[in-house]
Amino acid sequence: MAEPILSIEGVYFRYPNQSEYAVQNVSFQAERGEWLAIVGHNGSGKSTIARLLIGLLRPERGVIRLFGRPLDETTVWDVRRRVGMVFQNPDNQFVGTTVEDDIAFALENNGIPRDEMVERIHEAVRQVHMESFLEHEPHRLSGGQKQRVAIAGILALRPDMIILDEATSMLDPRGREEVLDTVRRLNRQRRITVVSITHDLEEAARADRIVVMNKGEVMAEGTPEHVFRLGGKLERIGLDLPFAVKMGSRLREKGIPLRVGYFTTEELVEELWTLYSKK
């Protein structure tokens, strides 16, 4: 097996003046090019993990390794260049007065020469389909557009990994789709590793693997298919199963002998059709 791009082992963290751990004994890994979802209700410790991953917080115990090296003061700036993070509130991460200024911000921080900056900015806006907005000011953009600018700002640094910290939770359905489509494309086409932190299992269903957090600990880990088998257990920790999973289990309760292990409406229809035509 190839060495994981990200691995965290036995990590503990608590906020200052708190006796309880926000994150305890958490371990998981991510492969290059993988889409890993970290799910949990608000306060389950999932956002704390995001902050630990790029060194905004430091674990009390345990080791975080990125790109084969432990995360510490000597590597943190390199990690921040290779790992981009999209935060929840689209407004509070937009630094520049215009779209191009904002995309330039991280490039400036990394001392990229100006000529190269211009080139990279153009390349980045094209990838998020915001070419015609270069000179727009943030208050003239929708939430989804601002998040795409944030992604462009990360792409300009040619990253290996993108972390979405509840990046779609403040968006309307259209904005959410825009952002997720963009990230999915980057994940597939450019093999950028994605770690998406969310409480939306519908969104997590698109991931390759899911880590379920509860009370600061990892409760389960595996493919969506594997994780959704937990069913009611996930609902008890405040999560909402994808529609097809919920529908399926309701139908099974009504005596329709459906198989387990699908989470899109299309798959459910196929499953029902197979049963129906057998009759």
Partner: peptide, 13 residues
């Protein structure tokens, strides 16, 4: 609702 839909499918079957 899910309930209505489940009933409808049940009926179909």
């Amino acid at each position: 609702t899910i309930e209505q839909t489940a009933d409808a499918i049940k009926q179909l079957f």
